[in-house]
Design a protein around this nucleic acid. Structure first.
Length: 302
DNA sequence: TGCCAGGAAGCCG
DNA sequence: CGGCTTCATGGC
């Protein structure tokens, strides 16, 4: 055993309304997930900071997350990147008090919110990953979506080995921009989805599509419109990306079948609710539709 | 085995 | 803008 002489870490403060256990449940939902690993209440994940591969181990302690650097101490900028990543990943910036106040009086959300208090939207800080994953998951079941992602990551991501386990980064847009559709179809991506993903990677690699463009105080309606103008991004994907990457708590992927199923079970309905019915329930959620959706998703895997 | 899956583009009126 | 058709492929 080689002692880790480079042991170091940073702390990321956590709000009162935060449950690490709920985060673990969410991050554990697929056995095929290969972008992080959970061992003994520690989440291990590989980050790529401008080519510098940083393996972090995230654990929970009093009022903070401890972000440990497992493969040596990163540069100063790398440490900041890691802390910022965790901050976004667990959505620690959002003040949930108003959401809980609303949910306490909401017949649909009240029981779920009580059961999973402290759950926060687990996000994708990387815009390319958020978009590529949204497209991958369109109109196919989640199990198959994870299969596709696994193949994609293991074909084009970067990796390191740590304690006999391999850790992957999500492929960069530059890497994917150089591909042809025929590179992705053998791994069972449809040609259409391959076009979408490569197209988005190409725009990002050229600098025409950047996250900062969407988070500079633009209103949700404008951002949604700009996203939907991108080929492969429809209303569902736009709202999914806004919810999981761009920090819009009002984003609402209303066409989501998981949301429909959650409402059906939660309300003990014979069949899935119509869009009009969902809009009716959601009138009370204004400004917090993303959180309402995320908690409803959570209710699907008790 | 047939319906379903964390939809979107394209076309038509 | 609203509705209809096509695409695509595995899961259960």
């Amino acid at each position: 055993m080689i002692p880790n002489t480079n042991s170091s870490y940073v702390r990321v403060p956590t709000p009162v309304e935060f449950s690490f256990e709920e985060s673990l449940v969410f991050l554990n939902r697929s056995l095929q997930e290969n972008l992080h690993r959970i061992q003994n209440d520690r989440i291990i994940k590989l980050l790529d900071h401008q080519g510098e591969l940083i393996l972090i181990g995230v654990t929970h302690a009093e009022q903070h997350l401890r972000v440990e650097f497992l493969n040596g101490k990163p540069s100063e900028a790398g440490q900041r990147t890691a802390a910022d990543y965790v901050w976004e990943w667990f959505d620690l910036k959002t003040d949930l008090a108003p959401f809980y106040e609303m949910a306490a009086g909401d017949p649909v959300l009240q029981p779920i919110v009580k059961r999973h208090f402290g759950l926060r939207v687990l996000g994708f800080p990387d815009l390319f990953e958020a978009m590529a994953w949204a497209i991958t998951g369109q109109q196919i079941n989640l199990t198959f979506a994870y299969t596709l992602k696994k193949r994609f990551v293991e074909a084009y991501g970067k990796s390191i080995v740590y304690e006999n386990e391999i850790y992957w980064t999500f492929p960069s847009c530059d890497e994917i921009a150089a591909l042809a559709v025929s590179d992705l179809t053998p791994m069972q991506y449809s040609a259409r989805k391959a076009e979408y993903i490569i197209g988005i990677a190409t725009e990002m690699a050229k600098g025409n599509l950047v996250k900062e463009n969407f988070i500079n105080g633009k209103d949700a309606q404008t951002v949604e419109k700009e996203l939907v103008a991108i080929r492969g991004i429809g209303p569902w994907s736009a709202n999914y990306v806004m919810m999981k990457c761009l920090g819009f708590t009002s984003a609402f992927p209303i066409a989501d079948v998981g949301l429909h199923n959650a409402l059906k079970y939660q309300l003990e309905m014979e069949k899935k609710p119509s869009i009009a019915e969902i809009e009716s329930y959601a009138e009370n959620w204004k400004g917090w539709e993303a959180y309402a959706t995320f908690y409803l998703w959570r209710s699907l895997y008790e």
